[in-house]
Write a protein that binds this DNA or RNA. Structure first.
Lengths: 226, 226
DNA sequence: CCGCAAGTTAAGCCTTGGCTAACTTGTGAT
DNA sequence: ATCACAAGTTAGCCAAGGCTTAACTTGCGG
């Protein structure tokens, strides 16, 4: 079945791909690899490859075969619109309707594709046109502007600071690999527990556990703080 | 694409068929004919026939070939649930979010398939568990009860009859707009003054003035008589 | 009892979105 | 410098969902 309101080939799935590409790109700042996309969306690389071709045909993405995808301006607009819907909905469902926070996400995941632009603006207005959701994530504006991620180096944080690990500068693959071996990946929330003097390591708590991180690593790891 | 939340084969389209069968049955109290259904949903009779078979396979309808469809208890539940969603949404969008009345219907038409039961209950609670929507349509309860409507088409009234204009069938937004431009809205009392022969218009007195109404309009306008 | 409208089946089309299997490409390690 | 291997791509396939037209049955009114 096509999308409820015919949006000219931009199905829910296409929107989800755009959203995924956007957020993967945001974390690594590079063209997004097919496998990362496939992984994120829990489909085979072949399927992701095919869908990416559809996005390209729709003018939403440009692709350099074997080197990754990037969103066009139009694709970015699609992604940001969906993200805006999602975040506004989460906020609204929790705040205005008292929905429990752990249910809010999946409800928004469905509704983000169903609400009209008009409704999303009414919701935004009711919320007082918020610019950030309760997690601290910025909410794109109706015309597709989004606050540039004000990420800092992990090394700049002080004990007690919390944030989201968003990327490694230059996406150093070796660092990424090293981190992932320890269960740390972009997107993870973290809290700095302690910092040793004399440029020593930081003790950082992730969902997956505590880690002592130091040296070049903490300078390369970029963190977004709410 | 399948329905967002997998509901075991009950796609949006299936829900729409159930809704259509329900409301056609409500008006005529007979098994619903394939052609009436096809007509209402703007598809070919063959398509309607095929879909009706699917409803039957899903246990939502029983069918006597060449003699019409009726919903089973399960089918009625599906229909009422969708109708409940629809009416709650209409009410909520207008009342809580200030959406204009003529846009509310189409927005609800999409969202009725997307909201979870939990969300619909939150909405109902926020509205104070209303039993009627602003068009005067009764809202089914969460467990599938609905007030038997004792409304008649305006076209069935005779001169001298009085009543209350309760709703427009299917809340046709264009008709609602047209009526409201003339100061006529659900809830208004009326009296039929005169009816012209040969299927001509009715002369109807409202608090706001007298109006000559005819054609499809008087068949869609539902009236409750004391 | 017959014809015609309503209903049904048959056959098929198209889209969406996924899969596996088999291929190409590009790269890092030797 | 080359070569193996991982990553990416293509080819070929499948199933579901919904719709269509064309050709058939049915059953009812005259």
């Amino acid at each position: 079945m096509a999308t409820a309101t015919d949006t000219g080939g931009i199905s829910d799935a296409v929107q989800d791909y755009a959203k995924a590409i956007y957020s993967l790109h945001e974390r690594s700042d590079d063209a997004v690899s097919t496998s990362a996309l496939a992984d994120r969306l829990a489909v085979s690389p072949a399927s992701a490859s095919a869908m990416v071709k559809r996005l390209e045909a729709l003018g939403l993405a440009t692709r350099r075969p074997y080197h990754g995808v990037e969103l066009t301006a139009a694709g970015t607009r699609v992604a940001l619109e969906v993200i805006r819907h999602h975040r506004l909905l989460e906020l609204y469902l929790a705040e205005a309707l008292g929905m429990s926070w752990d249910r809010v996400h999946e409800e928004a995941e469905v509704l983000e594709h169903a609400i009209s632009p008009e409704l999303s603006e009414l919701i935004a207005a009711k919320l007082g046109n918020p610019t950030h959701d309760p997690h601290g994530d910025p909410i794109p504006t109706a015309d597709g502007e989004i606050e540039k991620g004000s990420s800092r180096a992990l090394s700049e944080l002080e004990p007690g600071d919390r944030g989201v690990f968003v990327r490694v500068s230059d996406s150093d693959p070796e660092m990424l690999r090293w981190l992932s071996e320890r269960g740390i990946a972009p997107g993870d929330r973290l809290e700095v527990l302690e910092r040793q003097p004399f440029d020593g390591p930081l003790l950082v708590r992730f969902a997956s556990g505590d880690h002592a991180l130091g040296g070049a690593l903490v300078q390369m790891m970029r963190v977004e703080t709410a």
